[in-house]
Design a protein around this nucleic acid. Structure first.
Lengths: 211, 211
DNA sequence: TCGCTAATGTACGAACTGGTACGTTAGTTA
DNA sequence: TAACTAACGTACCAGTTCGTACATTAGCGA
């Protein structure tokens, strides 16, 4: 925020963070092979040398980017408190949180696409990722269990399937907005239609769960 | 199929087709910038020179790939005949066709991802694409209209929204199978679960439409 | 205040990669 | 059958891009 121009300051943490920040945007926007190490360096206040100093290379930097991106979701997901809501409302709330999160983090969505394009071969190298996402599904599993116990939900639904259903809708809306817009002349991210889609997702999921 | 090795044959059409075929796979697998012109040439029975001769360059080749990929869906979609089915069954049938098509054409799904990564900037250059996809939605619109007229469906649903809903599910399952598998240890394309997901999609959509 | 090391900057190289100049051959047509 | 053109192959270039060798400085601890 206040780095004196032309003066050399030593601040390892800031340098690291700034590199990861810029790289996130660059990898998300241009893909793994499309991203240029020189370009990332140019957009930071430091040099390419630092990327190799801190991250070893392009791949190491990409790994750091993936790790940070996923840690940020974790923080967002933790804010959800659904225990005091009735089952249907809780499911709807969870879907909305995913909906909002996807919309607010297009760069993350793009990274998911980039990682899939590489058959998720880097994901295994990011520690704690699995536990992280599993816990998110566990939350949903509990709600479904409650709904079943109260006789409100079908008893043949799997939490992971519901999670997939919710993610599909939210992911597609953000990830494919360009081709969808080009083909059907409809901007899926138009703010005027935001509430419509949010409600639609809730209806879709709760409608599926009701017995 | 029977090109004599080491012998020079002139067959413009075959050469063109083979280049596009290989390039489809290469662009889908490695993305636009990740794909290598030399690599594509090496995997054909001709040389890099021919790519420039027929397509002008990397971008021209990519355009040809996009065009062919979309034309192939058109053919598939035309096989659907839903007029003799009752509305709910017709919608389910349309969803299943999309489901099957996505599963059978992973390279196409990847190309959609690649094109979105580039903000769909090439799509406009492929003639007839918009009409093509619009007609697919028109089919769905007719069925929904029938359902509404018979008092079976809600009257506030938009055909394009339903199309999006269906595509989301099918697209996600194929496009994100790698990260999903890595995070949750579930293979979304496991043949043993195929029918389950197909039925689930049908239930999901028809459930949403019912009033 | 004087080293000592983490942190940073500069310059450069080797390999890669899209693209092209130029030569050659197959098949058609006058 | 001679000439002409579409189709094809070879060799190469110029720009790019990841990575590194080497020089330099900031700030901390003795």
């Amino acid at each position: 925020m206040s780095a004196p121009v032309g003066e050399r300051r030593r601040d390892a943490e800031r340098t690291r963070a700034e590199i990861v920040w810029v790289a996130t945007d660059e990898f998300a926007e241009r893909g793994y092979s499309g991203a240029r190490v020189d370009e990332i360096a140019a957009r930071t206040r430091t040099t390419k040398r630092m990327i190799y100093y801190y991250f070893g290379g392009k791949e190491g930097l990409y790994l750091a980017v993936l790790e940070r991106a996923y840690s940020e979701i974790r923080a967002a997901e933790r804010t959800v408190d659904v225990d005091h809501l009735e089952p249907a409302a809780a499911v709807r709330r969870l879907a909305e949180v995913t909906f909002d999160h996807h919309e607010a983090h297009p760069a993350f969505i793009k990274l998911v696409g980039v990682e899939n394009a590489q058959h998720a071969k880097h994901m295994g190298h990011v520690a704690g990722l699995v536990d992280l996402n599993s816990s998110a599904v566990a939350l949903l599993r509990n709600v479904l269990e409650r709904g079943r116990a109260e006789g409100l939900f079908r008893d043949d639904v799997d939490a992971l399937d519901v999670h997939m259903m919710i993610s599909s809708f939210c992911f597609f809306r953000v990830a494919n907005r360009h081709t969808f817009g080009a083909l059907f002349d409809r901007d899926l991210l138009d703010p005027a239609r935001r509430d419509h889609y949010r409600t639609m997702l809730g209806d879709l999921v709760t409608g599926y769960l009701k017995r």
